[in-house]
């Protein structure tokens, strides 16, 4: 397995773009501790005003975020044709319809709705709306194996 860091960004950009024509099949929900600022004036404006990336400064990240980064890089490298998204657990405006839309044909409205609520779990790795791993507990290669297995199923299989 080659290093994700050595990947060609243009290759992935093109494949990701092609994949995003359809809805994303893989979504990683950010860990709860990888938090941002509040809304309105001053909302999430850490980068423009904070000291540059020294350890312990506001723009440095919790270790859990780095695990997400490792998994993301690995998935993008090993599954170049698969669009992988990262969303905040608070972004329910995206997560709820995403999970519901994927699962409703296979499991029905009520179970899809319940699964959609479950989809807002911080650290969840979702494939077609189903949680297949939980970060940061799961090792990146185990996440890759789980995602690869889940992707082999048709998108709406029950």
């Amino acid at each position: 397995m080659s290093s994700p860091g050595g990947s060609d960004p243009t290759r992935h950009a093109a494949t990701a773009r092609a994949a995003s024509a359809a809805d994303s099949r893989v979504v990683i929900v950010r860990p709860w501790t990888d938090a941002h600022g509040g809304g309105c004036c001053s909302g999430d404006t850490r980068d423009p005003v904070a000291l540059d990336r020294r350890a312990g400064t506001p723009v440095s990240h919790h270790p859990a975020a780095h695990r997400v980064g490792e998994c993301y890089q690995l998935l993008r490298h090993e599954l170049p044709g698969t669009d992988v998204q990262i969303a905040s657990p608070g972004n329910s405006a995206y997560l709820l319809p995403h999970v519901y839309r994927h699962l409703r044909p296979a499991v029905g409205r009520l179970r899809a709705l319940w699964a959609a609520v479950q989809g807002t779990r911080a650290g969840a790795v979702l494939v077609d709306g189903r949680q297949v791993a939980l970060l940061p507990d799961t090792e990146p290669h185990a996440v890759l194996a789980a995602v690869t297995a889940a992707l082999r199923r048709p998108p709406t299989a029950g």
């Binding site: 960004p9 909302g43 980064g69």
Partner: peptide, 27 residues
């Protein structure tokens, strides 16, 4: 894409980014 690290730099669906952006500016 160029600095993709899965932490800060993440190519993201525009609907996901809009959710982040709008809740960051509204109040």
């Amino acid at each position: 894409h160029r600095f993709r690290d899965g932490i800060d730099f993440v190519p993201t669906n525009k609907h996901v980014v809009f959710g982040h952006h709008f809740t960051s500016v509204a109040g």
